[in-house]
């Protein structure tokens, strides 16, 4: 079983010094960028701006934590943004119709967990590759939701729920709530992945599903759990986003957000071939993307250029991933 960090020593064709892991590379790049921006961008190096930077990528970070669980288990969840948008939108519609907020949120959470269960069932029992399952289930779930439970694309947080809006707009000791929630979810996922047997099982699943199964790990029920967790965490991310803008625009599912999530996950060193990486990978990946986005916004760089920069960074990350975790006969087999 491979744990959090993989050292380059194990990889063939190494082009980096020994004992350097991808998250360390990303951290180093982030530190260099922060220093560069601090020197050359006025207004970058202030506590206020660094908090803003972190706040703006908190939702992305929370989503990436959910995706990390699935990717560590050598899966993928392209329906994650649907969970993030539809669950909270449904909850807000119910609350707007007069249902107590707690109950409405529980209903929203229940809905997305159902999507997770569906994904898990299709992948674990029907053995359909995760990529196709979640691509299809996302479209299916969103279409059904639009026809039945959603009234238009936009759901508004009903007035009078200041406590809920606090989740997105409030601050604790000057730290914006989205960051606090990101930190809390990160801590929980970290404890789950590194301190519980379920976490160890998930790593084992990603390393080799066959070996895990042979050693007595209930791989199929475990798959269900992974996708349920991913969907539930996406729901939390959706709530934070909803509270920040006091509305939910389910149109977000046709944005490039899902690629940003995969970018963060892969960037931090969670290999798409499974079994590697940790919560720390997500944190450094999020930090790098946050720094880049913030720097580009302060520079007032135009959108097309920003996309070019993001594309280049993703390519570089995949390149490093390939060099650190070269494909061999074992890891090349996907979707079993």
């Amino acid at each position: 079983m491979t744990t959090g960090r993989t050292t380059i020593a194990a990889a063939k064709g190494a082009f980096l010094p020994r004992h350097v892991s991808q998250d360390q590379v990303v951290l180093a790049v982030t530190v260099v960028l922060v220093l560069f921006f601090s020197l050359f961008l006025t207004g970058f190096a202030s506590t206020g701006n660094l908090l803003t930077l972190a706040r703006n990528v908190s939702v992305l970070g929370i989503l990436s934590l959910g995706m990390a669980i699935v990717v560590i288990a050598r899966g993928l969840d392209l329906s994650q943004i649907v969970s993030m948008a539809v669950g909270p939108a449904f909850a807000m519609n119910l609350a707007g119709a007069g249902m107590p907020l707690g109950l409405a949120l529980a209903a929203g959470l229940g809905l997305v967990v159902c999507l997770g269960v569906f994904n898990g069932l299709a992948i674990a029992f029907l053995e359909i590759p995760a990529l196709f399952t979640t691509l299809a289930s996302g479209f299916l779930a969103y279409g059904l939701a639009r026809l039945t439970i959603l009234n238009g694309f936009i759901a508004y947080v009903p007035p009078g729920h200041e406590g809920f809006v606090f989740l997105g707009q409030g601050a604790v000791f000057g730290v914006p709530m989205p960051i606090v929630i990101f930190a809390a979810v990160a801590l929980l996922v970290h404890l789950l992945m590194s301190r519980t047997s379920i976490g160890r099982f998930i790593y084992a699943h990603g390393d080799s599903a066959a070996a895990a199964s042979l050693s007595g790990i209930p791989v199929r029920p475990l798959t269900l759990l992974e996708y349920m967790l991913c969907a539930a965490i996406a729901f939390v991310a959706g709530l934070v986003a909803a509270a920040s803008t006091s509305n939910v625009n389910t149109q977000v599912i046709s944005s490039t957000l899902i690629f940003d999530v995969i970018l963060v996950v892969v960037l931090g060193g969670i290999s798409l071939s499974g079994g590697r990486g940790s919560v720390w990978s997500v944190v450094v990946g999020t930090a790098l993307i946050g720094t880049l986005l913030n720097g580009m916004t302060i520079r007032n760089m135009d959108g097309t250029l920003q996309n070019i920069v993001k594309g280049l960074v993703l390519l570089a990350a995949i390149l490093i991933d390939n060099r650190l975790h070269p494909r061999d006969e074992e890891t090349a087999r996907q979707g079993e």
Binding site: N49, N56, V59, S244, T245, N247, N249, V252, S255, G303
Partner: peptide, 18 residues
């Protein structure tokens, strides 16, 4: 600042915060 938020409230929120 003059940036595109692609008709999306969340992007407008992040841009304005920055």
């Amino acid at each position: 600042s003059s940036q595109a938020a692609d008709w999306d409230a969340t992007k407008a929120n992040n841009l304005t915060t920055s």
